[in-house]
């Protein structure tokens, strides 16, 4: 687990899906398919990611491939952080 996946996993466990408290959320655990992130939870998660990591996620980036797993979310956050560093 990493500095990105740990807080995201904590947020999912405590705020979005209390039912996952006993689960080990591995980087490839299917968050969407297992129902841990649902329609309302998805946009709460987006807000959390933006606030926590200081990034801006655009509507067209909120797609299955970016939110399917913790690893996918991490990749999205890293990419957003890098692109904002490169920007002047």
């Amino acid at each position: 687990m990493t500095a990105i996946t740990d807080p995201v996993a904590d947020y999912i466990r405590t705020e979005l899906a209390p039912q996952s408290q006993g689960l080990e959320l591995t980087p490839d655990y299917p968050l969407i398919q297992a129902g841990l992130v649902d329609s309302l939870g998805l946009f709460r998660l987006v807000t959390f990611l933006q606030d926590r990591f200081g990034i801006k996620i655009r509507a067209q980036e909120i797609v299955f491939d970016h939110f399917a797993t913790l690893a996918a979310i991490e990749a999205l956050v890293v990419a957003k952080q890098q692109s904002s560093e490169e920007a002047p």
Binding site: I32, Q33, V37, D38, L42, Q60, I62, V63, F64, F67
Partner: peptide, 10 residues
């Protein structure tokens, strides 16, 4: 598709 149902933009 199940992969789009939850994602309004998609």
């Amino acid at each position: 598709p199940a992969t789009r149902a939850l994602f309004p933009y998609a």
